[in-house]
């Protein structure tokens, strides 16, 4: 796990996946670079819920063309995506 990242972005994403997609009270027990699609953690509904979560949590507008594995397939990729979007709108 990359310890240098801004935990204000990654932690809410981990919490959302753990509680809303994995129905787990034990937190997110995967590496931040684990593939959520390959591990079977999210399906297409999960992707839509993650998009809605990122939009609400981080006040972003996610375009449908951005809903790609390289932006949504792991906590790390979502974190980087949020940072890029914030940078672009800053």
């Amino acid at each position: 796990m990359n310890q240098t990242v801004d935990q204000n972005i990654e932690q809410p994403i981990r919490d959302f996946i753990a509680t809303r997609l994995l129905y787990s009270n034990e937190g997110f027990n995967y590496a931040d670079d684990a593939s959520l699609l390959r591990e079977g953690i999210i399906d297409s509904l999960g992707v839509v819920e993650l998009v809605e979560f990122l939009q609400t949590q981080f006040q972003l507008k996610v375009d449908q063309q951005e809903v790609r594995p390289d932006n949504f397939d792991s906590v790390a990729k979502m974190g980087a995506f949020v940072r890029r979007k914030r940078g672009a709108t800053a």
């Binding site: 509904l45 992707v47 809605e52 449908q64």
Partner: peptide, 23 residues
Amino acid sequence: TLNVFSVTIVRPDGSEETKPLPA
């Protein structure tokens, strides 16, 4: 792009519009 649905409406005048579909 991942398999995320949109909804398309076709108006009575034939014009179409598509928007992302919330969960």
